[in-house]
Design a protein around this nucleic acid. Structure first.
Lengths: 109, 109
DNA sequence: CGGCCTGTGAAAATCCTGTGAACGCAGGCA
DNA sequence: TGCCTGCGTTCACAGGATTTTCACAGGCCG
């Protein structure tokens, strides 16, 4: 493992690496084409592995402020994220849905 | 690092942890996929270890109000709960039936 | 302009819930 | 012992709630 920049936070999940500081998410060193929002959302979830995060919590972390009562932004971006992650890592399911609550990031599928 | 969210209550039973505040029941740190009702029921029983709780008592705590005379909701959810717990913890029997009375949660099998 | 990102609305798909009913087990009794 | 009966367990299903996905309009920037 490289010892270069010590203070960049780096989140890992198997073959997936997330470097929020560098605005990049990599699979086997190859960048996924994530947009800003998608990356922010992924980084936020990956920062709390195995923890069930509510939509509200995720919205506050990523968008800031309070979500509208019937806001579906989080869901839509989770969907877009899953689509891109699914292409690069077809055999793993990193993001799990918890009905009535929110989502959970699991590094080991 | 300090504990992020102030956990007011944490129920434990061997390798099983229940955190109602976080909507989670964990085995070895991995959440098992409980639905809301299943989690509520488990949390309620686990909050009174070794105590035989009647169906009526459980229904009132989880569903609220009085159960119908021939209501089987508690039984059905206990069954669903046992199925999921049995997959994650095959060697222990946490929920015991007390004929004619109700159910009892035993942390040590 | 042309292309991409964003958030919203709404249809489609999926999951959860409670109920009825079938099944099995245990205890009581002749 | 063998049968009967009551209770607990589990299956299947319909209705409702929730999530997933698609399509689109507006905004931003090269």
């Amino acid at each position: 493992m490289a010892m270069g920049t010590g203070n960049t936070s780096q989140l890992s999940a198997g073959r997936l690496e997330i470097r929020p500081e560098e605005h990049a998410a990599l699979v086997d060193g190859r960048p996924l084409g994530l947009t800003m929002r998608e990356l922010q959302l992924l980084a936020t979830m990956a920062a709390h592995p195995q923890r069930i995060m509510t939509r509200e919590e995720l919205f506050t972390e990523v968008w800031g402020g309070q979500p509208r009562r019937d806001d579906r932004s989080v869901d839509v971006y989770v969907s877009r994220l899953r689509a891109k992650l699914g292409e690069a890592l077809p055999e793993v399911r990193l993001i799990h849905t918890h009905n009535g609550i929110g989502y959970r990031f699991s590094p080991d599928g």
